[in-house]
Protein backbone atom coordinates (compact mmCIF):
# COMPACT_ATOMS: atom_id res chain seq x y z
CA UNK A 1 0.00 0.00 0.00
CA UNK A 2 1.44 3.42 -0.85
CA UNK A 3 1.32 6.44 1.47
CA UNK A 4 -1.37 8.27 -0.50
CA UNK A 5 -3.60 5.27 -0.22
CA UNK A 6 -2.86 5.06 3.49
CA UNK A 7 -3.70 8.72 4.02
CA UNK A 8 -6.97 8.32 2.20
CA UNK A 9 -7.83 5.32 4.36
CA UNK A 10 -6.89 7.11 7.57
CA UNK A 11 -9.06 10.08 6.70
CA UNK A 12 -11.93 7.85 5.61
CA UNK A 13 -11.71 5.85 8.83
CA UNK A 14 -11.40 8.92 11.07
CA UNK A 15 -14.39 10.62 9.48
CA UNK A 16 -16.22 7.31 9.01
CA UNK A 17 -16.96 7.92 5.37
CA UNK A 18 -16.21 5.77 2.27
CA UNK A 19 -12.63 6.22 0.98
CA UNK A 20 -14.01 7.30 -2.41
CA UNK A 21 -15.49 10.39 -0.75
CA UNK A 22 -12.04 11.58 0.35
CA UNK A 23 -11.13 14.10 -2.35
CA UNK A 24 -8.62 16.95 -2.09
CA UNK A 25 -11.26 19.64 -1.79
CA UNK A 26 -13.15 17.89 1.01
CA UNK A 27 -13.02 20.32 3.92
CA UNK A 28 -13.87 20.72 7.60
CA UNK A 29 -17.60 21.08 8.21
CA UNK A 30 -18.36 20.59 4.50
CA UNK A 31 -19.93 17.29 5.51
CA UNK A 32 -21.59 16.48 8.85
CA UNK A 33 -19.03 13.71 9.46
CA UNK A 34 -16.10 16.14 9.57
CA UNK A 35 -16.82 17.91 12.84
CA UNK A 36 -14.64 18.88 15.79
CA UNK A 37 -14.82 15.40 17.26
CA UNK A 38 -13.66 13.57 14.14
CA UNK A 39 -11.10 16.30 13.43
CA UNK A 40 -9.28 15.75 16.71
CA UNK A 41 -9.56 12.01 16.17
CA UNK A 42 -8.05 12.41 12.69
CA UNK A 43 -5.11 14.39 14.11
CA UNK A 44 -4.43 11.66 16.67
CA UNK A 45 -4.57 8.97 13.99
CA UNK A 46 -2.21 10.90 11.69
CA UNK A 47 0.27 11.39 14.51
CA UNK A 48 0.25 7.68 15.26
CA UNK A 49 0.40 6.53 11.63
CA UNK A 50 3.31 8.78 10.57
CA UNK A 51 4.98 9.03 13.96
CA UNK A 52 4.88 12.83 14.01
CA UNK A 53 3.68 15.55 16.42
CA UNK A 54 1.22 18.00 14.96
CA UNK A 55 1.27 21.36 16.73
CA UNK A 56 -1.52 23.77 17.63
CA UNK A 57 -1.52 25.97 14.59
CA UNK A 58 -1.35 22.99 12.31
CA UNK A 59 -4.40 21.40 13.95
CA UNK A 60 -6.38 24.47 12.95
CA UNK A 61 -4.61 24.78 9.58
CA UNK A 62 -5.55 21.25 8.45
CA UNK A 63 -9.02 22.23 7.39
CA UNK A 64 -9.15 20.33 4.12
CA UNK A 65 -7.65 17.17 2.64
CA UNK A 66 -5.36 19.33 0.54
CA UNK A 67 -4.15 21.18 3.64
CA UNK A 68 -3.72 17.93 5.57
CA UNK A 69 -1.42 16.81 2.77
CA UNK A 70 0.55 20.09 2.86
CA UNK A 71 1.06 19.84 6.61
CA UNK A 72 2.21 16.24 6.35
CA UNK A 73 4.77 17.23 3.72
CA UNK A 74 6.17 19.80 6.16
CA UNK A 75 6.75 16.90 8.51
CA UNK A 76 8.67 15.13 5.74
CA UNK A 77 5.97 12.60 5.15
CA UNK A 78 6.40 11.52 1.58
CA UNK A 79 3.01 11.95 -0.07
Amino acid sequence: MNTTQTLQDIIAAALSIPAAQVTDDLSYQSIPEWDSVSHIYLITELEAAFNITIDTDEVLEMSSVEKVRETLRKHNVNI
Binding site: Q29, D35, S36, V59, L60
Partner: peptide, 9 residues
Protein backbone atom coordinates in the same frame (compact mmCIF):
# COMPACT_ATOMS: atom_id res chain seq x y z
CA UNK B 1 -17.66 28.61 13.95
CA UNK B 2 -16.22 26.29 16.54
CA UNK B 3 -12.94 26.15 18.43
CA UNK B 4 -11.35 23.72 15.97
CA UNK B 5 -11.59 26.32 13.20
CA UNK B 6 -8.87 28.84 12.58
CA UNK B 7 -11.61 31.37 11.84
CA UNK B 8 -12.91 31.12 15.41
CA UNK B 9 -9.54 32.26 16.76
Amino acid sequence: RDVVQKEFW
